[in-house]
Design a protein around this nucleic acid. Structure first.
Lengths: 341, 341
DNA sequence: TTCCTAAACTAAAGCGCATTAGTTCACCTC
DNA sequence: GAGGTGAACTAATGCGCTTTAGTTTAGGAA
């Protein structure tokens, strides 16, 4: 491996052209104060020498670091099953890079670790803002970020205390669509297999689900899981072994839904119980039977999050700080798993 | 949002303690030249003021930026279907952060864009090294990176010209296992539904597959796709409509395999033709029938890649530069899709 | 006492850029 | 021809840290 090249500096450019660094800097940054002729000479030489401003130097001089961060606290094990985060990341990523921003990405094992990462990034002045997700009960992150004064957007809000701006999903609509569809296909006793109770969006979805069902159907049973396959299986078994067995199961994401389908098949009840997933993905299509699912494009969601964060970074007290954005109206994709009964 | 706090600087620490910046710096960096007593006072105050070194300043003074990059060129559309990359990223991520390294992540639409990103990162001195993947025919990246003198590791090599160190997968073993298993279950005419021909690993796998089959079975037919579901469907249809219809189909990844299963089911041939995937994932388990697959944990793979890159960054000419590493021996997981015939 | 040495500490320069506060100089006005 | 003006350019400083090359001081040896 050859030694890392000596990269030309602004001084090199200036010296070779016989001008001051200032002039070169002005030329390169499109500021007035240099003649057109000089500007062109500088730009030409910069091109020739393959010059680019040293990122650290630029940042140190008070220019923005053009970097935002994304920390994700997940259990390593389950990770990679859900496609949600990769797609979120993809969407955010493309918006950011189209605006010249880089993305610093880190996963952690716990919220405490995540706090440490956020603190470090802020202290080191490494990022202009951050994306966070998966708000929990009594989550310390919003207050912490507010205290740090670090611009942040919550992917999948809202923040109950309104400390952080968020890009939200309208769970009300999603759940109404789902419940309506199940009702119309003849289901009467719903049950919901959900995620960990400490996640706020889990809470919200359950609330929305109950509300959508209320008045029309019996109050649905709700079971919590840690989003793992095992607990998905176990939860499903418990539900279908109960006395008043439900005739439709709604799963909080596709991983749980897949586990649920397995449990139903094993119990020979797949034909009798409808199944739906609150997250759509390739697996929902591939499965036999294919799964009815709520669809909201996580990529589009990620794009909205990134855009909001950039607006916030540009003007921390601007309008972006205030209202939460709703990324998109969720729709429902009806497939084989919820036949007319 | 409160204004971003004024972060204390080294100077602040030094002034408040009545010592020089140098002394403070020595104390904080564990260097000799300060008394134990002074060191402790500095550390205590740093803690109290919540001080951390400004990252840009540190980098500018020649310290490593403690950052590596990962650029990924993928078609946005297909992305998110395969879980491979997210898992790779996860593995790499955890190794990096455990060593204090941050990961700069960017996706691009084309190799040219990717080259531009790599060049920029190198010129700006933003990263100490990079991870690249998906080597293509006549891929310009290895030579380019070598010329830049930027440490790089190829995830999924080897690099045919040996310009870059790589973490490789033993496709020979994988394909031998697969072919052997198919043969033992009674299959005689294999076919392979593969990815784009310009990807080197696609090429290598096909070669390994052919070699594994040679002498034992008829030369397998090979069809290329762009990894999309549509082409997976089309390719499968073409294969099963041919005169000498294969009795086993091997798919290069799970997305193709899923499409293939759909095509087979539609043609009513699912019971007669065995199916296997060269990539394992949750979907292979969930599918009906569940899919026999080659397994190699992408997370472990990512860990190996990160470790190799860090060794390379630490000593660019050290032993890490030379031999390619084999991440792990692939195994085969036999499931329902390849029954005894 | 003098001289030497190591420990503890400091002054100052440098990293590569941006920016403020000038300085020159040609050109224009009255 | 004095005074004014704006364009083109430069010197010098700062960003926050690391590091080199000292300087000071206490303590020990001779």
């Amino acid at each position: 491996m050859p030694p890392r090249q000596h990269r030309p500096t602004l001084k090199d450019l200036a010296t070779r052209l016989g001008i001051s660094e200032t002039a070169a800097s002005f030329a390169l940054n499109g500021r007035p104060g240099v003649s057109e002729q000089t500007r062109e000479r500088v730009l030409a030489l910069a091109e020739e020498l393959n010059w680019a401003p040293n990122h650290a130097a630029r940042t140190l001089s008070g220019i923005t670091s053009m970097t935002v961060g994304f920390v994700l606290t997940r259990d390593v094990q389950e990770f990679g099953m859900e496609s949600f985060y990769l797609r979120l990341l993809t969407g955010a990523q493309f918006v950011l890079s189209s605006r010249g921003y880089a993305l610093l990405f880190q996963m952690t094992h716990s919220v405490d670790e995540e706090l440490a990462v956020l603190r470090r990034w802020s202290k080191e002045r490494r990022v202009e803002g951050v994306i966070i997700s998966d708000l929990r009960r009594a989550d310390p992150r919003p207050a912490f970020l507010k205290e740090l004064g670090l611009p942040a957007v919550l992917a999948g809000g809202p923040d109950p205390k309104r400390l952080l701006p968020a890009v939200t999903v309208d769970d009300g609509v999603a759940m109404r669509l789902l419940v309506e569809h199940l009702q119309q296909t003849g289901c009467r006793r719903l049950a919901y297999v959900s995620g960990p109770a400490e996640l706020l969006h889990v809470h919200r979805r359950i609330g929305a689900f109950r509300k959508a069902a209320s008045g029309v159907l019996a109050d649905p049973g709700v079971v919590h899981t840690d989003y793992s396959e095992e607990q998905g299986l176990a939860a499903t078994r418990r539900l279908i072994e109960a006395d008043d067995r439900p005739d439709a199961l709604v799963f909080d994401n596709e991983v749980l839904a897949v586990a649920g389908v397995r449990a139903l098949r094993a119990a020979g009840l797949l034909a009798e119980i409808s199944v739906a997933s609150c997250e759509d993905s390739a697996i929902c299509v591939a499965l036999q039977p294919s799964l009815t699912a709520v669809r909201r494009d996580p990529t589009v969601f990620g794009e909205a999050v990134a855009r909001k964060l950039l607006r916030l970074v540009d003007s921390p007290d601007g309008p972006a700080a205030r209202p939460d954005i709703e990324a998109q109206q969720p729709t429902i994709v009806v497939r084989e798993s919820t036949p007319q009964r």
